[in-house]
């Protein structure tokens, strides 16, 4: 197996050129898919037989919750890569994705609370699922806080990589919290092995808005990483050339 892609990915210059070509396209296709999924889900998908229209918040809640976990998985993997191979791109990835992950985690928590009030009858209970997602949000906040508060940038990169790797333990807890313990939260909507327990006109817009949010966040992450690459590599000759040639 060829490892060149792995080494290429580790080169800030190569990543910058790759991202300049793709970031805007990925971001815009994310916006388009997200709009299609949300409009379809919020306006045209059928309502639920028990919950009526309040069920529609699923089209915001589930994509945000999926993304919150996926971003953290990325954070953990990048942390591991940085601690083992000292790849330059890994801390750039962590620094750029952490605020995005925190944002989607917050959206998942808030939309869940808004959904919970009319259906369950409460904004919040300390059940295993809700609490473990709150911990996920706090982990993101911890990563952001440490990255920004440590003066020594090399130390900061190492510290957030460690939090990223250790925080991975939380992901299976979130995933299986609804199965291991009694919770108020219902089991997962999307499973890898089974068809979702809803008709196609309900899950198709959900799938589209989830994919849309993936692309949306990926595009934003690439844009943020480009900025971070330029900032960190500002003393190298290729950045000087790039800035002189294309402006900032």
């Amino acid at each position: 197996m060829s490892w060149t892609w792995f080494h290429k990915l580790g080169s800030p210059k190569w990543f910058f050129q790759f991202a300049s070509r793709w970031s805007l396209g990925v971001f815009l296709s994310g916006v388009v898919l997200l709009l299609i999924g949300l409009v379809w889900g919020l306006a045209f998908a059928p309502e639920d037989y028990q919950q009526g229209n309040s069920f529609r918040i699923i089209y915001i809640h589930v994509p945000a919750a999926i993304l919150a976990q996926s971003c953290y998985l990325g954070l953990g993997v990048a942390g591991f890569v940085f601690l083992v191979w000292q790849m330059k791109m890994a801390p750039i990835f962590i620094k750029s994705v952490a605020p995005l992950g925190a944002l989607v985690a917050l959206i998942a928590l808030v939309s869940g609370a808004i959904w919970g009030k009319p259906t369950w009858g409460t904004w919040w209970v300390w059940d295993a699922r809700l609490t473990s997602v709150l911990v996920l949000f706090l982990l993101y906040m911890g990563v952001i806080a440490i990255q920004n508060s440590l003066e020594d940038k090399i130390l900061a990169d190492k510290a957030v990589a460690v939090i990223g790797v250790v925080g991975l333990i939380n992901l299976p807890i979130i995933k299986y919290s609804v199965e291991w313990w009694n919770t108020l939260h219902q089991p997962a909507t999307f499973k890898l092995t089974e068809k979702p327990a809803m008709p196609m006109e309900m899950w198709l817009p959900l799938l589209i808005s989830s994919l849309g949010l993936y692309l949306f966040i990926a595009g934003l992450a690439m844009l943020r990483m480009q900025t971070e690459v330029l900032n960190r590599e500002r003393r190298s000759s290729w950045v000087k050339e790039e800035v002189l040639k294309n402006g900032i």
Partner: peptide
């Protein structure tokens, strides 16, 4: 002092439920 409702992960439209 408080009663909360649970719901499951099965969603369907009123017509299908009917």
């Amino acid at each position: 002092s408080e009663v909360l409702a649970k719901h499951d992960e099965e969603y369907m439209s009123p017509e299908i439920a009917e």
